[in-house]
Amino acid sequence: MRASSPIEQTAALGDYRARWRAVRRSTAPADRDSAEQGVRLAYRAAGLEPPARIVWCDGPQALAGLVVSRDDGRNLRFQLVDRLRRQIISKIEARIHRKVLAAVDSAVNPADALVTAAAEAVIRNVPEQNLSVLGQLRRTGLSLAGVLQALTAPRSFSSCAAGPHDLSWLGAYDYLREVLGLHAETEPLRGLMQLATGVGWLLPHEHTCWLAERPNLLCGDARDRLHHASGPALRYPDGWSIWAWRGVEVPRWIIEHQDRITLAAIDDQIDVQVRRCMIEIMTPERYVALGGATRVAEDETGILWRRNWLAADAWAAVEVVNATPEPDGTRRHFFLQVPANLHTPREAVAWTYGMRAEAYAHLVVRT
């Protein structure tokens, strides 16, 4: 639907931003027929013959674990996605100023921390083949063309495959096509758009294109960090999952068997970030009550608690009392985690407000 007035065009930016956010975060099963049609369109748009085989996987773990043979041909991620994008940008900039294109891209495709975090978790955890040049030569042969291909071929999963974060830029061009009427300029992107709206990951090669399902679970906290308090934060149809607490990947048992988190288990944990997640899940109040931390200072603002493991490895929290009493007259105690290099409760409380201790001391009313 082409919008004729500037007011309509501006209003449509929000609609397309919401649409493509939903596309990136979708946990619905892939529309396989539509995605396969999109593959063929995308290959043709890039000047390539459509692949003889389109193979589905139930998640990126299976996709990354594939053994690609010489019969599958060379990887085409660059030709299918990156080079095609550059070509379309050149066509678009011949029609509209690059500042307009940048503004549309910023409005329709803002940074999506949750999708980026999910993609980074996938890339971090899938098996990496990282073939050597010799390994590539075994696939391509010892011809001059084979040697050149082996020297330039992408070798890691992140450079061979494309996920939702790699295709999110298509939202801006969908807007340019439908709202500003740039149909001819964006026509080569129709296949990729169809793929992006109906598939999770793709691994394109000359003769075989592998497609992976979208996750069937994607959870985050209010700050768009991967997070789920009682189960996996990211899960694919084949069962492959990531457990995370406020953006930190943690072992499954820490989320699903929280009763096993003890002082000894916390002390045994080597990873500093995971250890702090364990204390958060146990709750700082219980951790202090069980003797996990030592009282290091007390003043009118509260009590500072600290636990040292190594010289540069410590945990601290300041215990404060709510200024407003509860209905029964009692006052709630709160534990606020703070940097371990602070020395006084006043300094710690001031830090939670983004202030220096001296400035906080001059406040008349404190909460």
Rank of each mutant, 00 (worst) to 15 (best):
P60G: 08
N341R: 13
R155I: 14
E93G: 00
R32G: 11
A52C: 05
I96W: 04
A22D: 15
T140L: 04
A94V: 05
F334Q: 02
A18G: 06
V199Y: 02
V133P: 01
Q129L: 14
D15R: 13
E256Q: 09
A102M: 12
G329P: 01
L218C: 12
I255G: 01
L131C: 05
L342R: 05
I96L: 15
W56D: 01
V321R: 15
D174Y: 02
W315T: 05
A52K: 14
L180F: 13
G200H: 07
Q149E: 12
V365R: 14
P127S: 11
V55M: 13
A297L: 11
H97Y: 08
V147G: 03
D221I: 05
S90R: 15
R252V: 07
K99W: 07
D299P: 00
E298Y: 02
I54P: 00
L167S: 04
F157P: 00
A150F: 06
D72I: 03
D224Q: 12
P51E: 08
L234H: 03
D238P: 01
I54E: 06
R86G: 02
D58F: 05
C209G: 00
V147T: 12
A103C: 04
E178N: 09
W315A: 03
R286D: 09
L336C: 10
W243L: 03
R25Y: 10
Q79S: 14
S90P: 00
T152Y: 04
Q269S: 05
Y173D: 01
V248N: 07
A184I: 11
T116C: 09
D313L: 11
R53A: 13
W20K: 09
G329T: 07
D224F: 11
R25H: 15
S230V: 15
L134H: 08
L66H: 02
R286I: 03
G14Y: 09
N322Q: 11
R77E: 08
V250A: 09
W305Q: 04
A161P: 00
R276L: 13
Q337F: 10
L142S: 08
A196Q: 05
W240G: 02
P284N: 12
E280F: 14
R225N: 13
V288D: 00
E213A: 15
R19D: 04
A52D: 12
T262N: 08
A3N: 06
D82G: 05
R286M: 10
P60A: 12
